[in-house]
Nucleic acid binder design. Structure first.
Length: 177
DNA sequence: CGCTTTTGACCCGCGC
DNA sequence: GCGCGGGTCAAAAGCG
């Protein structure tokens, strides 16, 4: 857990995804010193929302606490509560799975309360990299797909070249508030 | 064959 | 304790 490349995911603890916070977004870009986007997404393509709103939509909270065992087995007392790093964003898109340049294997799908669409769970297929993401469509507006990333990649992106273009082709601009 | 997806079972934390 | 909701496992099926 220590040898993690910190360049990819932000440190998210406030429950609100806020680009003006001091935490760094993955592959952040700046324009005149102002936050301009991350991961190839331009700022206007990203909508930020509080965790409470996400919960009401039947989606996962942005912050969560996961217990890890520090020793062998599942001894009580050896566990540490670790706040995993998570962030979510939503886009207008016909396709659920945005090509973000990484290879993912689906490992679960669950029905979501208050939502007619299921949520899909994916894990990064790279050995030793346990980054996860979940994808789900909003019931309120079926045109919107919410993607939540969790963890940090321990390796470089596998398809760096067509990454950006692919994503832009796949999604529409979500109007900023 | 070597992957990935599907899908019900299972686990776990939490509120009642 | 029990049920519920979220998250994961893993066996089977699917597919190039």
């Amino acid at each position: 857990m220590d040898s993690i490349n910190p360049s990819f995911f932000l440190n998210q603890s406030s429950g609100i995804i806020n680009p003006s916070s001091s935490s760094s977004f993955p592959n952040m870009t700046y324009n005149n010193g102002n936050f301009d986007g991350f991961m190839g997404f331009k700022r206007e393509n990203i909508q930020y929302f509080p965790a409470a709103e996400v919960k009401n939509e039947g989606f996962v909270p942005v912050e969560s606490e996961i217990k890890f065992s520090a020793g062998i087995g599942k001894k009580k007392g050896n566990e540490k509560k670790i706040r995993k790093q998570r962030f979510a964003f939503q886009t207008r898109s016909q396709v659920d799975i945005l090509d973000d340049g990484y290879r993912w294997r689906k490992y679960g799908q669950k029905a979501v309360k208050n939502n007619k669409f299921p949520r899909s769970y994916y894990r990064c297929t790279n050995q030793g990299c346990n980054v996860k993401k979940q994808v789900q469509r909003l019931s309120r507006d079926e045109g919107i797909v919410v993607t939540t990333y969790e963890g940090m990649h321990t390796h470089p992106v596998e398809k760096p070249n067509d990454n950006f273009e692919q994503i832009l082709n796949q999604m529409h601009i979500y109007p900023p508030f």
